[in-house]
Amino acid sequence: MDGRDRDAAGRARSARPRDGLGRPLPHGEPGVPRQPEGVVRTPAETVGEAQRLLDAGMPFHAHEVFEDAWKSGPGPEAPLWRGLAQLAVGLTHAARGNTVGGARLLRRGADALDPAPVPDVYGIDVPGLVVWARDLARRVETGGPPVDAAAEAPRLVPGAPGAPAAPRS
C-alpha cells in the first residue's frame, strides 16, 4: 500500500477537506461537504442541483453533478452534460485565478454546446450559456477583474424562480 487515501474500489481519493472551489485544505480544517459520486438523477434534478451549487459559488461541485449525468445518462445526451461540466470547471479555474485553464475550459465547453448537442435540452438556455462562457473567457484572458464564482454563475434555465432571465456576466 502506498499510504494514499483510497476508496472501496482502490482508486486514490484525497480525504483532505475542500473549499467551495474544490481546492484542498489542510487536514483538520472545516471544508465544504463533497458531492457523492455516481448519483443517478433525472435531468431536472441534475439541473436543479447544479444550479444550487453554482449559485452557492461552488462550480467545482456543480461540475461533479454534471459529470454524474454525463456518465450515467443516455449516450446521445453525454455531449450536453460533458459540455456543461466543462463550463462549470472552467468557471472553477477562472475563480481560482487560473486564467489560461479557465478560459480554455470555458471555450471547450462552449464549443461542445454550440450547436446544442441534443434537441431537447430540458429548458437549459444553451445559446445563452455559450455566449456567457465565451464572454467570460475573453474577460479572463484580458486581465479583467477577478472572477467571483457565485456572483457570475450562469442561469441554466432562464426565468427560473428567483433568477434573472439570462445568464449573469
Rank of each mutant, 00 (worst) to 15 (best):
A8T: 10
S72H: 15
D114Q: 13
N98A: 15
A133H: 05
P154K: 07
L87C: 04
G75R: 15
G48R: 15
F66L: 13
A94C: 11
W132R: 05
P146G: 09
P119N: 06
A8C: 03
V89Q: 07
D148R: 15
G3L: 14
L156S: 02
L54W: 10
V121A: 07
P79E: 09
R107P: 02
T92D: 00
P26I: 07
V130M: 06
G101E: 00
A112E: 15
L84N: 04
P117W: 08
G144F: 02
E64N: 10
M1N: 14
G10I: 00
R11W: 14
L156G: 03
A153W: 01
V39S: 11
D55E: 15
H63C: 04
A116N: 04
D5M: 07
E49P: 01
A166M: 06
P158E: 00
P30V: 13
A12H: 06
Q35G: 06
E49K: 00
G20W: 01
R41A: 05
K71S: 05
V89D: 00
R155T: 12
R23L: 13
D7W: 13
G73N: 09
L106H: 03
D7V: 10
G101T: 03
Q35P: 03
A110K: 09
L106G: 02
V47T: 08
A163H: 05
E67C: 01
A150H: 02
T46A: 14
D114L: 09
G144S: 10
H27K: 00
A110V: 04
R6A: 06
A160M: 04
S169H: 15
R139C: 04
A150M: 03
R107A: 01
V157E: 02
R23G: 14
P76K: 07
T46W: 00
E64V: 06
A137E: 11
P167L: 05
L84Q: 07
R11C: 02
T46L: 04
A9R: 12
L136R: 15
L21T: 12
H93Q: 12
P161M: 09
P74V: 10
A69F: 01
A103H: 05
T42L: 07
V32K: 03
Q51C: 08
V40E: 13
H63L: 08
R4I: 03
T142H: 10
A110F: 04
P115M: 07
G73F: 15
V157Q: 06
L25W: 14
R82G: 06
L156E: 02
P30R: 15
E29M: 14
H27N: 03
G3F: 12
E49I: 02
L21V: 03
A15D: 00
L136W: 04
D55W: 02
V126M: 08
L21C: 10
G20F: 01
R11V: 00
R168Y: 08
V65D: 08
A15T: 11
G159I: 08
G90L: 07
R155N: 08
L105K: 15
L113D: 01
A165Q: 01
G143I: 08
